[in-house]
């Protein structure tokens, strides 16, 4: 269970900005602070090449294609980029500080692959079963989920509220032609829903326990999902076992995590999850638990949903969609 604690601690730290952006009132100073991280490839290319250089068109085309944010007030900062580059390597080092996420990844990917192959009637023995489908990874972090989904053939958009994460994920994905097509955006599910974007599958792993208003969050996820599309969420259950292992165990007894990392009251039970999603027009079809085996260092799918679990649902066709 301690590995799950570290997983969620890391996710919580990286997603702290989301809670701020979800709250109704955001102080102007915070908005100004966030803007400091934005960069523009167009500005960078303008600074690096003469106006007649053909690569400018390529760069601008790519920037436009990836819907990257632009700002005339800043330019590409190479020192910042080098710093993000180092952090990206840390994110993706399977024995580094994000090791618990790496250990959990194969198991949640196995669940996602099998359920979505069934959902979309795709061949599970195909190397790229999700070709032709659009997926979005809400809370993508460094891209640990987005990149495997792209290798499975999906057209992937990765979204994170932390600008640094988006830069890190983009740097790493560009290292491989298969994953360099991923669109990474620094934004929120709410804003994308307001823009009217739609996806075949919406995935949000280890995020909902950190958002201020789970019901509103799930409405946004549902709004992003096409009718009959799939929605997948994973989180920690609000049980005594989860309290014992993630809060009392890790924070107070073993002191592996600072006190206050997790708020037990923020955990969502599977019943609450189903109800929230039901009200958001998503019918939950399947829930599976994740159980950690400390001997093998691997996570296994299980019927035991008392600590970590993942839920898959189908977006209903409502009257409003007709």
């Amino acid at each position: 269970m301690l590995a799950s604690v570290r997983v969620n601690q890391l996710q919580r730290l990286l997603l702290s900005a989301r809670r701020l952006s979800s709250s109704p009132i955001i102080p102007p100073s915070r908005l100004l602070h966030q803007r400091l991280f934005s960069t523009s490839d167009t500005d960078a290319s303008a600074a690096s090449f003469s106006s007649s250089h053909p690569k400018i068109q390529t760069l601008e085309g790519k920037a436009s294609n990836k819907s990257r944010s632009t700002s005339s007030t800043t330019s590409l900062n190479e020192d910042e980029l080098a710093k993000f580059s180092a952090i990206a390597d840390t994110w993706w080092h399977s024995e580094g500080p994000f090791k618990p996420l790496h250990q959990m990844n194969p198991t949640r990917l196995a669940f996602i692959r099998s359920t979505l192959c069934r959902h979309f009637s795709k061949d599970p023995s195909s190397a790229k079963p999700f070709e032709g489908l659009k997926f979005i990874d809400i809370g993508c972090g460094g891209g640990l989920l987005s990149e495997p989904l792209a290798r499975m053939g999906a057209t992937v958009t990765g979204v994170d509220a932390v600008d640094k994460n988006v830069k890190i994920a983009r740097l790493h994905a560009d290292m491989d032609p298969v994953t360099s097509t991923i669109e990474y955006l620094c934004t929120t599910a709410e804003k994308l829903a307001d823009e009217g974007r739609k996806f075949d599958a919406v995935l949000s792993l280890e995020v909902i326990e950190h958002v201020a208003n789970p019901a509103e969050f799930c409405k946004s996820l549902s709004a992003l999902t096409i009718p009959n599309g799939a929605t997948v969420l994973s989180t920690i259950n609000r049980t005594m076992r989860a309290y014992a292992s993630t809060i009392v165990g890790a924070e107070y007894i073993l002191r592996w995590l600072p006190k206050g990392t997790h708020q037990w009251s923020s955990f969502v039970t599977p019943e609450e999850m189903s109800m929230i999603l039901q009200r958001a027009s998503v019918d939950v079809k399947e829930i599976a638990g994740f159980v950690y085996n400390p001997i093998t260092g691997r996570w296994l799918l299980s019927d035991d949903i008392s600590v970590n679990y993942i839920a898959y649902g189908t977006k209903r066709k409502d009257l409003g969609d007709i």
Partner: peptide, 22 residues
């Protein structure tokens, strides 16, 4: 070893992929 060069926006060549440890 794996590394992230600052080749943003360009399609990596085989040499680039080798240089990045891929």
């Amino acid at each position: 070893p794996s590394s992230s060069l600052t080749g943003l926006g360009e399609v990596p060549s085989t040499t680039d992929l080798f240089m990045r440890g891929r």
